[in-house]
Every structure is written in C-alpha cells, then in structure tokens.
Nucleic acid binder design. Structure first.
Length: 570
RNA sequence: GCGCCCGUAGCUCAGUUGGAUAGAGUGUCAGACUCCGACUCUGAAGGCCGCGCGUUCGAGUCGCGCCGAGCGCACCA
C-alpha cells in the first residue's frame, strides 16, 4: 500500500504510452513526485519541467499529452495545471486500501526493515558523576531516547550508551575532601549536593593551603592505580549519583544498554598512544603529545598532556575503537551539543588517519542547540539553573491540577499526571529542529495549550473514548463514508507516516516525527468536529470507527517514538 | 583574527536532491459549538524569507560578498 510508488508506476506507463520513442528520461520517477501545496490540487503531483529538455516540449504540453494517456481505477482524475500533472485518488478506494493496510498490523505502521542486520551505537545523556542533572542534559537525553526508538522501529539493533563523565582529578579532590571532612550519612542523604559541598570546600581550603592540591592529585593517582580505599569511595560516589539520575530516567522512561564511561577506557588508552606512535602520527609539542591536523585546517588534537596524562580525545578514541570492536556497529552516533563540533571533527579525522576508515562515514556527531534560562547561560555556581527534577515535578503538579479540575473522577490521576506533565516537557524539547537553541521560560514550559504534548495525548484519549462508546457492529465498513475532505486529509497524513519516520531516522531528527504526529492529531480533531462518528448507519459508522482506530494507533506510535506515553483517559 | 552554525509574521518555529499564491502554533481581534471529552473548531489581521550580487525557465532553498547573533579555536570535559 504505497500510493506514491503506484503513482510513479502510473506515470511511467503514461510516459510510454504518450512518448514511445523518448530517450534519456529520469529513472526514479517516485523521487520526482511531490505533494501539492494545497489539498484541492490533488494527492500527488508530477512536475514535468525536468522532462522538457529530453522531450523538447514545454512542460504544460507534456502534462497535457500525459494526461490523455491512461486511465486507472485507483485514480479518480488527473488534471494539468501549468507544468504539473495532478493526480486525484479514487477516494473510496484509497480509504479502503489504506485502512486495510494499517489495520493488518496497526502497531507496526511506520516501521520498516531498513536497518535489518545493522547495528547502531548511540552515545547520549552521558552525565557527569557528582553533578546535578539539569536542563542542559535534557536535550541529549530525550533526543537520544527518541532516536533509539526510531532506529529500533526501522529494524536496527540499537546500543544505547551512557558515557559517564567519571574521570579526572576533581574526583581525587572529592575523595580527599571526603576523607578529611566527609560524613557517610550526609552523602547518603544529600547525594550529589553533599559531594558538591565537599568539592567546593576543598577548593576554598586549597586557596589557603596549596599543599591540598597535591594531596587531591595523589588521591586521583590512587584511583588510577586501583587503590582499594580510593576506588571504593569513588565507586560509592558513582553509585549515589546514578541512583539520583535513575529517578529522572525512570520518570522519562529512558534506558541504557551500557554505562561504560570515561573510567572504563582508562586502561585502554595505552594502546591508543602506542598505536598512534607506531603509525607515526604522534608529535611532540611543548612537552605534550599531539596529532597535527594543520593540513586539514584544524588545530592539533591533544593526546597526552606534558605530565603524561590522557585527555578527553584520548579516551574518546579508545571508546570509538572499543565500540567498533565490541558491537561491530554500522553507525555510531554522538548526541552532543554543537559546542563540541570541532572536538568530533578532530576525533573522526584522527581515527581515519589511524586507518579506521569507518570513522569517516559511520561516526556521526548528532549536534543540537544550547539551552539558556531566561536569556542567560545557565551556571551552577550562581544558581541560575533549572534542575530537571524540579522541572518535571512542577510539570506533573500542573498536569495534576488540570486533571483535578477537568476529570476529577479519573482513577490513576498521579500516573496520568506524570505522563502528561513529563510529556509536555519532552514534547517541547523535540518539537523544533535539534540545532535550534532553546531559551527556557517557566511559563512557556508549563503551558499545555496549542501544539503541545498534552494536545496530542488528549487527541489519543479522545480516540479511545470514541471507540469505548462504540456499539458492536457486524456490518462491513462502508468506505464511501470516508470520501469527505476531512477524512481524506487525515488518510493522506496516515499514508505518509512511514516515509516520515524513515526520514526522521535518516536525518537523525526526532522533530520530524513530533510534527507529523501533531498534524495527524489536528486533522483528527478537525474531522471529529465536522463529522458525527457514531450514528444510525452501521456500515458508515464502522468505516469512521476504523479511521478513528487507525488514527489512535498511529498517534500512539508517534508518541512512543518521541518518548511519550499515551494515556487512554486523561 | 580564523573556523563552524544560525537569521522566515509581534513571539516560538516548519518549509532537504531548486518548483504552484511562503505555512503552523502562540499572542491580538472576531466568531462557532446545548454534541461521540470545551486541553475542541472557524475566520481576520500580521511577511523587501537579514542585505546585495550571481547561477537558473524558476531561488526562502544553490554560489559569492556583506551585516547581525551564537559557538569553538592545545595540556578542562
């Protein structure tokens, strides 16, 4: 049931019939087909401009010649407008075929086998140990989560990796501070906040007593060397941080296959350095070891500090190679803000220079915009931040207040409030192209009107409600009941959903799914408003219910793909 | 200074191998709906698509140059 392909086949037949002698015509006619800007112009349009040269004829004349060539039952009529050939579906036939195709496997509509046998690694969320989970981490987390679901739906094997930021001298200082002034109870209770307090105190005291710095570094060295005490404290810090983070991941319904972070690669960097050395890529520069990237127009990639310590790049090179060797990925995505564009360009180039050709076309930096708070950059130090658990909590409270007002008798209010409140936040994050910067304002974030997550969820609940109220119908659906403009507009959107999901996957752009799902919700609400679904005509009602059911299923899929729940009542 | 990215309605944004009269939401104003869920629907107003030049039958889309904003540019991650 791919109308686009069928129209393309039809155009080919028409071309043969009208111009049997023609040479040099385009191969892929489906790629030329367009969706007209307005519905009244038809369901698909074939622009004849590109044929003009080969046929030595003006586009309008070509359109006219073609339109005389063929008749088909699934096409009601063909119109020539300027250089366009506009196809109008046989509406009843379209409704019948499309709904049959969707209902054959409703929860799979939009899925594909494009990624069958292929593996994709995706690095996202990647939180730092001993730091609060704030708004700045939301984009990577929800974009990654959505892409995981989209790739999965397209048949890929997905490996989601939370590349923890758990390496660096600050952790030595933190352990040192804990040994000096820490309290087990307080850390258990206060979690990340208590660790931050210890770290801040360390830095303050180190200003007065510079010897502390050396002590902190010594503790990090102990972590590196696997000292039992240092390691156990550090591991405990990690556990406490992750426990906090898990609460947020649970609320968001986000899962990872791996938590191998920077420390995991600490013992894999020697090999990287050795390999770079052997391949003659390493150069000394001011006591540090670098890979010179000047001929590629980039600053050098720093591999070892002058004190011999590894760097971000070193561990990322090790991680990329490890992932390739462990998962044999066909694609490896890094869902990280655009600030790190250069970092990833350097990383991929160095891998390529090392002889890992796959880095060039399989590793991709999926970058996204920055988030600011009321026009200013967020800064933990000054307290100008939006903490994620606070945002999610407030959104849930707002949702609960609305539910108490509108649906006081709802059974599982708390759970629905979570789905709707969190849905509003996640939806807003995935609504625009990911490259766009986001400026956060509380009033906007907590507004559930207009094109929002709750609007789409509401439409889903409305579909469920109609289906619950429907009587048992044995009559076969009468698809002639779905030939009106509103039903057809909705059917068109449903029919294009599969190509939309495929495009979102190809472009690593969840917002495409967000918007397509919203369009379907809008079209359903308009249909619902203009037409009575349940009436005396059983066969017509059956058709309208099937449309409602198909719509419900596709909205549910769309919501799932961007990481939102679909409550049946709200 | 160099590099990357962005600039479309008051605001937030769609618009991708160049294609028909540039579209949504929001806000403003005006309406509809006694109903299968009023978190619904309709309409109006609102545009030198940052500016200029070029390529083309055709440019919001491609190229070049400018202007403006953001990000980045070696021992943090």
């Amino acid at each position: 049931m791919d109308m686009k392909q069928r129209i393309a086949g039809l155009v080919e037949e028409m071309l043969h019939a009208a111009f049997p002698q023609a040479q040099g015509l385009p191969e892929d006619l489906a790629a030329l087909l367009e969706v007209p800007p307005e519905e009244k112009m038809g369901d698909y349009a074939f622009p004849c401009f590109k044929l003009s040269k080969a046929l030595r004829m003006g586009p309008p004349m070509i359109a006219k010649k073609l339109s005389e060539a063929v008749e088909k039952p699934e096409i009601a009529r063909v119109e020539c407008v300027g250089g366009y050939l506009n196809f109008f579906f046989n509406r009843e036939n379209f409704a019948r075929e499309l709904l049959s195709a969707i209902m054959a496997a409703p929860d799979r509509w939009g899925s594909s086998e494009d990624g069958k046998g292929k593996t994709v690694c995706m690095d996202y969320s990647s939180i730092n140990i001993a730091k609060r989970f704030h708004l700045g981490h939301l984009s990577t987390t929800v974009i990654g989560n959505s892409l995981k679901r989209i790739y999965d739906f397209q048949g890929w094997k997905t490996v989601s990796i939370n590349h923890l930021g758990d390496w660096g001298t600050q952790f030595g200082k933190m352990v040192c501070a804990y040994k000096k002034w820490g309290d087990k109870e307080k850390v258990e209770q206060g979690g990340v906040d208590e660790m931050t307090r210890l770290y801040v105190r360390f830095n303050e005291e180190a200003k007065l007593d510079p010897a502390l710095e050396d002590e902190g570094r010594a503790w990090f060295k102990k972590i590196e060397d696997g000292d039992e005490e240092a390691l156990s404290i550090f591991q405990w810090f990690k556990d406490v941080t992750l426990k906090d983070a898990m609460k947020v991941y649970d609320v968001l319904d986000v899962r990872f296959d791996s938590y191998a972070g920077e420390s995991f690669y600490a013992d894999k960097t020697d090999r990287v350095v050795r390999e770079l050395e052997e391949k003659g890529l390493l150069k000394d520069s001011d006591g540090a070891k670098i890979v010179d990237l000047e001929e590629y127009g980039m600053p050098p990639c720093l591999i070892l500090k002058s004190d011999g310590a590894t760097l971000y790049h070193t561990r990322d090179i090790a991680a990329a190679i490890y992932r390739k060797e462990t998962y044999h990925f066909d694609e490896s995505l890094y869902i990280v803000a655009y600030q790190q564009d250069l970092h990833f360009k350097q990383l991929f180039k160095v891998l390529e220079l090392m002889g890992y050709g796959w880095a060039k076309d399989q590793c991709k930096h999926v970058s996204f915009g920055m988030v600011s708070y009321e026009g200013q950059a967020m800064a933990t130090r000054t307290g100008h931040v939006v903490l994620l658990d606070e945002l999610l909590t407030r959104a849930q409270e707002k949702a609960l207040a609305i539910i108490n007002e509108k649906s006081p008798n709802l059974e599982n209010k708390e759970e629905v409030a979570r789905q709707v409140g969190v849905g509003a936040v996640v939806y807003a994050t995935l609504q625009n192209n990911r490259i766009k910067d986001i400026d956060f304002w509380w009033d906007r974030a907590l507004n559930f009107d207009g094109e929002t997550g709750p609007y789409v969820q509401y439409t889903f609940a409305r579909c469920c409600s109609v289906l619950r109220k429907a009587p048992e119908i044995t009559a076969a659906p009468d698809y002639a009941a779905l030939t009106d403009d509103e039903a057809q507009a909705l059917l068109r959107l449903l029919s294009r959903f599969p190509e939309t999901v495929a495009e979102a996957c190809l472009r690593n752009e969840p917002s495409i799914v967000t918007r397509a799902t919203t369009e379907i919700a809008k079209a359903y609400n308009k249909y619902y408003y203009e037409h009575r679904i349940l009436d005396e005509d059983a066969a017509a009602t059956a058709a309208r219910l099937q449309l409602t059911d198909a719509c419900r299923q596709v909205i549910k899929t769309g919501l799932y793909l961007i990481g939102l729940a679909a409550p049946e009542r709200m």
